[in-house]
Design a protein around this nucleic acid. Structure first.
Lengths: 222, 222
DNA sequence: CCCAACAGGATTTTATCTAATCTCTCCGAT
DNA sequence: ATCGGAGAGATTAGATAAAATCCTGTTGGG
């Protein structure tokens, strides 16, 4: 066991609060008062304050001095900006992955990818996203570039919130799976340029899909 | 007035603690206990804890659950990784600057650049860095891309710490000034490709200088 | 009469303190 | 070398106070 996870209340509160925001139970613009959250989550003020600070760093929460915190509302430009940032960081991170990824890592990524495709096939968008996060986390962990990986990790909740609000277009998950397969093949071949190009293109496709759905926000299942 | 003195103790404590770390008074690896810092800075535990969380987000502090916080030690690969990340984000941010920068902004940037060159001419490396931060802050603020700008803002303290520890090579500040001038000219001409290329190249030059000095760490003044 | 400025109180954030619980590290004994 | 306990420090809760903001009702001038 590499990590037995000594869980603090701070971690638990952060995860719960993040989920409330990402899933929309706390909608954009909602006021986040420490006392109300502490009561709702059954915790003290200390871990709630820490959680708000962390989620502010993730861009999920906006805070002004003496004016409290609110759930951040994302405009269309924010979607574009977040994905442009992520694509740029992918351009840094994927070459590092090629440099350091082991065949054992690739096997583990293959296994996660199979689970992702199973969830996608079953039409389980939320489940697919959860596995997708594991996939990307492992991928980025192999890069040995903690600063760049932190940017991807921090902005993940924003991406998840957008997806849960806007949903996937028909066939989107299948195309994502194809991109993953192609990326894994390029990684196996240690083809830096191809891998980076595929990752950036995949991110851009995801952005385009989200922007299209934001423009015409009807929820069509998978 | 865009930003005056820190309003809350949290801001003040964060700024003081960041300075202690950046200037080396708290060297890499130093243990950061909440009680000791609270006593040293004349504050309570609440703002100190918040400051540690913020500086952890900036990559200046490393924390493990129930094991406390330490000043992060940067290896050579970290320097490279941080600058590669910053260059990639510049590639996103500078086109946004071209899109949104006003002539008034450019005038203000010219004024800051003049102050930067005056400090560089006087051999005041620390002063030059302070003005340099104002220059870049204003530059990035015009981009209207808060997520990307936050990455640059967060990693600034790391860059500052490296510079204060390793110093500038002879002529480095002058070359930096030349790069700024060229960037400003490209911005005035609204030349997106040129501006982005110059900014990335300037960042890479700064990285190369730091890496050279990290390899042979003798302190030569300006 | 209407609107703006102002003063007061309520609310919330921020900050400090105390105390209790939990985890890690270290040290000695088996 | 492994186990267990003591101490140090992190984490948490709760009460409380100070500071700032928000809300509201009133006043004063036009």
């Amino acid at each position: 066991m590499i990590e037995s996870t000594p869980i603090t209340h701070e971690d638990a509160v952060t995860a719960q609060l993040r989920r409330l925001i990402v899933e929309g139970a706390l909608p954009p613009g909602a006021k986040l008062t420490v006392s109300a959250l502490a009561a709702r989550l059954g915790a003290g003020a200390t871990p709630v304050r820490a959680a708000l600070k962390l989620l502010e760093g993730e861009g999920l929460v906006e805070a002004l001095p003496y004016r409290g915190a609110r759930v951040r509302a994302l405009a269309t430009e924010d979607i574009r900006n977040i994905y442009r940032l992520r694509a740029a960081v992918l351009g840094v991170l994927v070459p590092d992955v090629v440099r350091h990824v082991s065949n054992a890592d690739l096997d583990a990524l293959d296994a996660l990818e199979a689970r992702f495709e199973a969830a996608a096939e079953a039409g389980d968008g939320a489940g697919a996203m959860a596995v997708n996060q594991q996939f990307h986390r492992l991928l980025f962990a192999t890069a040995r570039n903690p600063d760049a990986a932190a940017v991807m990790e921090r902005s993940w909740a924003l991406v998840e919130a957008l997806r849960l609000r806007l949903g996937f277009s028909p066939g989107r998950l299948q195309r994502s799976a194809e991109s993953h397969r192609a990326l894994l093949a390029a990684l196996r071949g240690r083809d830096t340029a191809a891998a980076a190009g595929l990752a950036v293109a995949s991110s851009n496709e995801a952005m385009a899909d989200l922007l299209a759905r934001a423009a015409a926000p009807r929820r069509e299942a998978v």
